[in-house]
Nucleic acid binder design. Structure first.
Length: 428
DNA sequence: TCTGGGGTCCTAGGACCC
DNA sequence: TCTGGGGTCCTAGGACCC
């Protein structure tokens, strides 16, 4: 049986989410800005046509935004996460063989499905997601993930394809014609470092890369490069990653709303990040053995500097209070009063499944302390789940709020806060 | 004045051991 | 002044992704 993958890729996802509740913005240039309204992280086609690149710093484009009436939103991740879930639900009903690759992309393994006509199937999915959720998607269908990615990319850019390109069970020339139309920079796995090197080798399109000898690719780009070449040539190297793999790290980092040298503000930021990261850790059923924090000055100012400290725990933990106290203590060792800090973050890594702890690790240690901590965390999580986020929290989190990012342009939380539900007016 | 956040994987090199 | 070979583990840094 031949393998067939479909990649379902949402078009301009964050912008499309905003448009669900603002249909008046259809056809208008729209951008979604990152936290602190710093730079553009999603653009509508109209905004792309104005020459606004991905990651465009908002302050540099303010005049252009104004001149062309570009509508700006602060990122509203609660909304995007909710829409994303609905799409995954819809796709999971089509087949359980789904890999959720990112918030706006999923691979489906179609190999075992009885599909007569892949184009027709693709158009049916595009139509369903549009009608039931209101998000436009592009679909690429191919024998490997890398080709499916390439196909969805072509489908997105070529209006004649109406959102669907099928490269599965097609002859070589057909696949080749689309690979020739794909610039090397647009190939999945070729980034800003690799692209110029490949161009230096005379390789400018996906088709040329597919023709490279795998051994040569290996020398030039390592194992991933070799796999990339094989995948482009139709030989599958990347399988569907079905099961929820154990996460390797959890990070909470922020650029501050305002630069600061106030130690209390830094402490509050670190405490907040620690709490969020620990909550996430508990939700995944994990404990951590390593936690680190960093603080930096502004990258865009002279004298850019960063500080970093890592902590290790002999006994794995997911205790917010413990993490706060250790991290804040470490912070005090890094703090320099004459610096103006711009960004900070907390990382957790080296995880251990909570269920394994009881038997393995506490053989010689008192389990009582661990159980007490777990109970305390559970209680806090339950209260906050029931009565609202941060209803109960640590005093350290409240030492200052000047670190909090600004999001002046955020849309209402239409689907995640009752008081922000959209109101429908029914005509008389 | 104003430039995001959260991840994964691979590789090279050092530490350490026998 | 001379000083092997090989294995493993860990870490930092680089590259990539969305």
């Amino acid at each position: 049986m031949n393998t067939v993958f479909a990649l379902i890729d949402c078009n301009n996802f964050f912008v499309s989410c905003e448009r669900i509740f603002r249909p008046d913005l259809e056809g208008q240039p729209v951008v979604v800005l990152s936290s602190n309204d710093g730079c553009a992280v999603a653009r509508s086609n109209e905004a792309k046509a104005l020459g606004i690149p991905m990651g465009a710093p908002a302050f540099k484009y303010r005049q252009l935004f104004k001149d062309h009436g570009v509508v700006q939103f602060s990122a509203n991740f609660e909304l995007y996460g909710d829409i994303s879930k609905r799409i995954i639900q819809l796709l999971s009903a089509i087949t359980p063989r789904i890999e959720v690759y990112s918030v706006d992309e999923s691979f489906l393994d179609l190999s075992a499905l009885l599909i007569q006509n892949y184009e027709a199937w693709g158009r049916w999915v595009v139509e369903r997601i549009s009608r039931e959720i209101g998000i436009p998607v592009s679909i690429g269908i191919a024998p490997t993930k890398t080709l499916a990615k390439l196909a969805s990319d072509r489908a997105k850019k070529d209006p004649r394809l109406a959102g669907v390109l099928n490269l599965a069970s097609r002859d070589k020339e057909f696949v080749y014609s689309y690979a020739e139309a794909t610039a090397i920079e647009d190939v999945w796995g070729v980034g800003r470092r690799l692209a110029p090197r490949l161009r230096g080798e005379g390789i400018a399109t996906a088709a040329q890369l597919a023709d490279m000898r795998p051994q040569h690719a290996r020398q030039l780009m390592g194992i991933r490069g070799e796999q990339l070449v094989r995948e482009l040539a139709g030989e599958g190297c990347f399988g569907l990653e079905l099961e929820h793999k154990l996460q390797k790290s959890i990070a909470r980092t922020r650029t501050f709303g305002e630069d600061t040298n106030d130690p209390a503000v830094l402490q509050a930021a670190i405490a907040n990040f620690a709490v969020q990261a620990a909550f996430r850790l508990r939700r995944e059923g994990l404990l951590t053995r390593r936690a680190s924090l960093f603080i930096t000055t502004s990258r865009h100012k002279p004298g850019y500097k960063q500080w970093h400290r890592e902590l290790r725990f002999d006994v794995p933990t997911a205790d917010s209070g413990l993490l706060i106290s250790k991290l804040v203590e470490a912070l005090q060792g890094l703090y320099e009063p004459q610096q103006l800090y711009h960004r900070a973050g907390v990382w957790l890594h080296d995880f251990y499944p909570e269920v394994a702890v009881q038997t393995d690790l506490f053989g010689q240690l008192s389990p009582a302390a661990h159980d007490l901590s777990r109970l305390r965390m559970q209680t806090i999580d339950n209260i906050n789940h029931r009565y609202g986020k941060r209803r109960i929290h640590y005093a350290a989190e409240d030492l200052g709020n000047k670190w909090e990012p600004k999001h002046r342009l955020r849309s209402p939380r239409y689907v995640s806060a009752w008081q922000e539900l959209p109101i429908a007016l029914i005509g008389q």
